[in-house]
Design a protein around this nucleic acid. Structure first.
Lengths: 198, 198
DNA sequence: CCTTCAGGTTAACGACCGCTAACCTCCCTG
DNA sequence: CAGGGAGGTTAGCGGTCGTTAACCTGAAGG
């Protein structure tokens, strides 16, 4: 799979802008006219690309959950055989990359889930659950003494920690992406270690 | 100040239900008729108690920020003179209590801020900033080596961790409030300690 | 050169929503 | 026992929003 140098398709433009707007003002707070204007076309023109506003949100959320899950699975396969600690580090690193690179998406991910149709919501929930369970099993390899309910809670809490990136000062005030990523990584590891300390 | 045993006023009922509904479906996703129905009156009856839907959200968000800040200040005064580590523990405990007892409010707190009028939003932001700075100064007493920008990032991230309670299984699946509180507390301390480890 | 079709446009419809107006009904109080 | 305000009610207005309908246009293809 080559890194894409193509110009983004119109669909992709729309999804990107819609994600940004949804994250900024909430799903119900954004009108289709605004989404259209953000990509240079006007309101109803969007319906040549999507069945409706709901469909855009659904595609975004399913995409996010799927991307997180398949990314994690890929990492798991890549580091197969290495110590569990390194696997956990790889998972953390992947999640941080996502949280830092796609802040609007990370925001949507745990905010607008309830606006989906039942079937889409079930799908997203299932993907999210698989992602969590994957973390839980790796975590319990690293800390065998950690009970499963506690491990699950710990994973959710660390997601909360890592997903806090949108709250870390807008753009310029951050101490640089690499520094922030390292800080988050250390804190996640520290939180997990503390969770495992009876 | 006696613990209140009075029946809640109508205003308080409304605010509580509005908070729950806003947290569930977002500010724009809830109609005034639903809020009214949730307290047994119908739609426009709310306007005897609030100037409008916006006013409810504003009162909720200002209330949350104020409550967090004054609670933290009170705790700081109570444990005055004790080691900084204990002060930090007290802050963490207070935040956890709030996050576990008022999950809808904690959700609103960092989700619907942008729906406020400019003046209200500025007020809430100011209260939030004071709260953060209070944590930052205590944290830097405990870990003098921690630079201020890193400390601020660490505080925001730990808020993300502690505010993850709404994502920890609905009601029955949790291992009990006390256990969860202890787990969160340990993880927060672990995350801070790791943040301070160069 | 004519056709077709992808990808736009504007107009407009129907539903919904926040809010106001007008009215009603207790209950407290002088 | 009058009366007045607190706290409801329903009807309805004005605006917004998602969506559809009808139409246009430029470029590709036989």
């Amino acid at each position: 799979m080559a890194t894409r140098t193509d110009a983004p398709t119109r669909r992709e433009q729309i999804l990107k802008e819609a994600a940004r707007l949804f994250a900024e003002r909430g799903f119900h707070g954004v009108g289709v006219d605004e989404i259209g204007a953000a990509v240079g076309i006007s309101g109803p023109g969007l319906y040549r690309h999507f069945a409706g506003k709901d469909a855009m949100l659904a595609e975004l959320l399913v995409g996010i959950s799927g991307q997180l899950l398949t990314g994690a699975k890929r990492r798991l396969a890549e580091v197969d055989g290495t110590p569990a600690e390194e696997v956990l580090d790889s998972l953390i690193e992947g999640h941080i990359d996502f949280a830092l690179d796609d802040r609007p998406l990370i925001t949507l991910h745990d905010r607008e889930l309830d606006r989906l149709r039942d079937s889409d919501r079930k799908l997203v929930r299932q993907l999210q659950r698989q992602y969590v369970e994957l973390w839980v099993s790796v975590l319990r390899e690293v800390y065998p003494g950690l009970a499963e309910p506690a491990a699950r809670s710990a994973v959710h809490s660390v997601f909360g920690l890592l997903n806090s990136t949108p709250h870390l000062g807008r753009a310029g005030s951050l101490p640089g992406r690499g520094t922030t990523a390292e800080l988050l990584h250390r804190m996640a590891r520290g939180a997990f270690a503390a969770a495992a300390t009876e």
